[in-house]
Amino acid sequence: MTRRILALVPLGDPAVSDPCAAIAAAADVAARHGLRAGAMLLGTASDIDTAAAQAAREGAVEIVLATHRASDDPPLVEHLLASFAHLLAEDEDALLLLLPGGAVGEELAARLAARIYAVPLGRCNALALDGHTVTAHRATYGGRAELVVETDAPRCIAVLRRPMETPPAVAAPTVTRVELDIPLPQDVPQPMIQPAAADRPRRVDAARLVVSGGRGMGGPDGFAQLHELAALLDAATGASLPAVDAGWASVSQQVGQSGAFVAPDLYLAVAMSGTPQHLAGIALRSRIAAINSDPEADIFRVAEIGLAAPWQEVLPRLIEKIRDG
């Protein structure tokens, strides 16, 4: 039996920055194996049609549009889980299910794996199909090593990033609409949304430019200057794990293997060494500029342009230059 490749797309949660990335990833895997990609979109009546058009643009040949009237805004993971599990319950095909990256997609992938007894492959760099076998390449040891795993299980779930090249759009996909009326779990704790702080940092995972600081910033003062520079550049401020650990930036700003995955046009790395763990969170297509006092720092091996000097001497003058235009 041929394995179907199906993207599962949760809509309506701003925490999922690029939900349709899973469709592009599915189309990319399918095209490399002479298969067709499907997409199952779960949303509300107001967003589903727009998303359907995008699904076709991302390369989905078969599209299922599912809505549930009782879904919350933003939808609870437990409700997404119940709906996707219901939609997949009767599906007897061998499936490779793909979800978008990020906290929601990854949680959903793992929990759905338990619900429908699929093999979770985790966050994959590449997937290949050969007969019944699915082979997954995954980063391990903080991005320092690659693990290759295989399974013949009929159902697998993976998280896969948007491919470097956008797959061709599909002109006339088949579209099926499903209105769900299954009971959604009611014993789920409702998150209380905290009021947004006025100085909350801009989202790092959707920014076109990111200005990021590492352990070498040495304290919160340096991050205040990074924020100032970021504001002048219309950029978001990111941070490495040690900088977040030290309390100089919030966890939502953490970039890396264990933080946000960012794909800006330009990533300015200030006072960071350029560990594999950190670089794993920056898209390959993003250009990197670096400022570091150590001219031998690894970050200069991957940067396009570098300035070797202490940030304390550079940032104030750089801010002044940019402000003065």
């Binding site: 949660d13 701003p14 925490a15 999922v16 920055s17 990020g102 906290a103 929601v104 704790p189 409702q190 998150p191 209380m192 949304i193 905290q194 947004a196 989202r203 919030s250 966890v251 939502s252």
Partner: peptide, 11 residues
Amino acid sequence: MRGPREEAIAL
């Protein structure tokens, strides 16, 4: 933190 929002959840 969940994307753009901070959540408090009584477990």
